[in-house]
Design a protein around this nucleic acid. Structure first.
Lengths: 353, 353
DNA sequence: CTGAAAGCGCTTACAG
DNA sequence: CTGAAAGCGCTTACAG
């Protein structure tokens, strides 16, 4: 056989002296169910398959409706090579081990063009269809694309709570509201009364949730929270200069890298932490090196998020194969929030008397 | 249009009032080259495509011979969730950014069954064919599978030098022989005469190369090297107990985790490093936390390895599209070794007098 | 200038 | 019990 020739069912059939459809039947093990192929015929076919090390072309199988066995992973922010890569790694770890367990391969959509610093899911040569379903990652997602995805009946799930499409987007997220509320309550119980929040922009749901928890706890205690937004390209110390006028005793800092820079600045300018001011980090990166190592902070269960996303996606893919009965309304989207844990750290203490 | 209906060229054609083949021609931009479709017809078709947000089914395109645009990545060792994951991360970083640049998506073959602690590339439902080519990662690779891959004309490239298949395996590797030779020469120049090597098993090419460089340098200087193998499940301190009888002044330790354990053991038992004995690490993990932070060690250019692998694979895929002319012999396989850098560290010094 | 047709490699009713 | 045929959605010669 010439080296470049691909083995097909046609060739197997010719060698075994049966028809191509018989090969397909034997291969899919449906031989017994659909009709009884004599075991002699079946064994002969299997023997030829073994000898030729034939494997069905997954592309052809997929064209006739079979699942591809691929789980797509799309990240809105470029996943590499900047520091955000570290954010995704634990998620990917969870996704990969869950995919391994169910025998799926992972299709990383890394090729989609980056337009205005963000990737576009839909573009003229998108290969979404190569995967049976897709997991979406990103701080912010495009509402139009989520709408379109929802309309397409393509199985997908977002990681992180999403408000787009009238709340119909399926997601596995983190309960940041509860987590930051608990954090703020803790600070209040320690005696803090002048709270400050150094946060990212509020376009992402995760940022809004973090803020909401803190503001709610503060409102319940009858205190207000000074706020400053740390925009890209603007130094955390600028935000600090703005906010220090309110003489806060505890700082909630959303971004871990900002927190590290701020701690370095405070140390350099002679402000003791937590002696003069407490610092609490709300978000996190992968490596400790990226954030302050011993800060009091939140830890999201990212590997679990990834694994749960695979699980929910698998269910959605199976549900699509068994269509809803007439008249029955579509089931509500999967929307789950997981708990965050609090890492004690050494940067939170009671305020100075 | 019912929500679950997929748009096809057939539908575009009906709406635009042309034939399906005309849609295909317009879509592929070959309209001008192959024949002149009037711009009015073309515009009409393009308009319908835009309105319906049609995207060609990549599965069907692939079945008729088009490239899938996917680059496969196969790791012999399970990539997650144990510590080896950290080893692959920088490689994947390099692979991903290179893939992004050429508009390819990444297919991670994570589903293949793990048999005897290692993955099998070929198995009854392998989806290799979904990718245009594949990058192979792993400390050790199966010689039979490499043979078979070579015979199949499927484009692939290994990361790391490979001796299998009579040296016909294409690879991008690291020149460990030169790197460890230089390291050993450095130790010898500092005055060391009693060298010891605590190494992994010698089945992997990378391990053999690391050993070869050290042994060659030692032989040139007329000294011998005491050796001990650190097998899985055996403690590094056992190997140390065996080897300390030779009273070495410098220890070459292949595995970074072993090195960390050994340094802890030496510290605990009152042996000063590098005062009493120098320690040099030959391999590396991703995070500093996994190996000793300040050790003298080698650093392989892993992100570059990944990027170069994508580049070489791309060339191989293109070469396959332009068949070698009659009589011409096949080009030699790509086999490239990159240089390793030496990280100074603080664990190498001249031996005590 | 454009359509009808073959074919990629499969699965799955449908005839014998 | 098994083969011939239709069809999945495309690309690309090949006829008009």
């Amino acid at each position: 056989m010439p080296p470049n020739t691909r083995v097909t069912q046609r060739m197997i059939a010719d060698i075994a002296g049966v028809s191509q459809s018989t090969v397909s039947l034997v291969l899919n093990g449906k031989a017994d169910a659909v009709r009884r192929i004599p075991s002699r015929t079946r064994d002969r076919v299997l023997e030829v398959i073994r000898e030729t090390t034939y494997v069905a072309n997954p592309v052809a199988r997929s064209l006739v409706g079979a699942a591809t066995g691929l789980i797509g992973v799309f990240t809105y922010e470029p996943a590499f090579p900047d520091r955000t890569s570290d954010f995704y790694t634990p998620l990917l770890t969870g996704i990969e081990s869950a995919a391994e367990r169910i025998g799926a391969d992972l299709l990383l959509f890394t090729s989609t063009p980056v337009i205005g610093g963000r990737r576009r899911l839909f573009h003229e040569s998108n290969r979404l269809r190569l995967a049976d379903g897709c997991i979406l990652l990103g701080r912010e997602m495009d509402a139009n694309e989520l709408d379109r995805l929802l309309g397409s009946a393509y199985p997908f799930i977002a990681i992180g709570r999403r408000e787009a499409a009238d709340g119909r987007v399926p997601y596995i997220g983190v309960d940041y509201v509860a987590a930051t509320h608990a954090l703020a309550v803790r600070a209040l119980e320690l005696g803090h009364r002048r709270l400050a929040l150094l946060r990212l922009s509020q376009t992402a749901e995760s940022s809004r949730d973090r803020r909401a928890g803190i503001l709610a706890a503060a409102a319940e205690a009858g205190v207000t929270v000074a706020e400053a937004e740390v925009t890209t390209g603007r130094c955390i110390t600028d935000a600090w200069e703005v906010i220090r006028a309110s003489r806060p005793t505890v700082l909630f800092v959303e971004d871990p890298s900002d927190a590290r820079d701020l701690l370095a600045h405070l140390a350099a300018t002679g402000t003791a932490v937590p002696g003069d001011v407490s610092v609490i980090v709300l978000g996190e990166h992968n490596r400790n090196a990226d954030g302050p190592a011993d800060a009091t902070r939140l830890r999201a269960p990212r590997a679990e998020l990834g694994a749960r996303a695979v699980g929910a996606l698998t269910e959605a893919m199976e549900a699509r194969r068994t269509p809803v009965p007439e008249g029955a309304s579509a089931p509500p989207p999967v929307q789950i929030l997981l708990d965050c844990t609090l890492v004690g750290g050494a940067t939170l203490a009671a305020p100075a008397a």
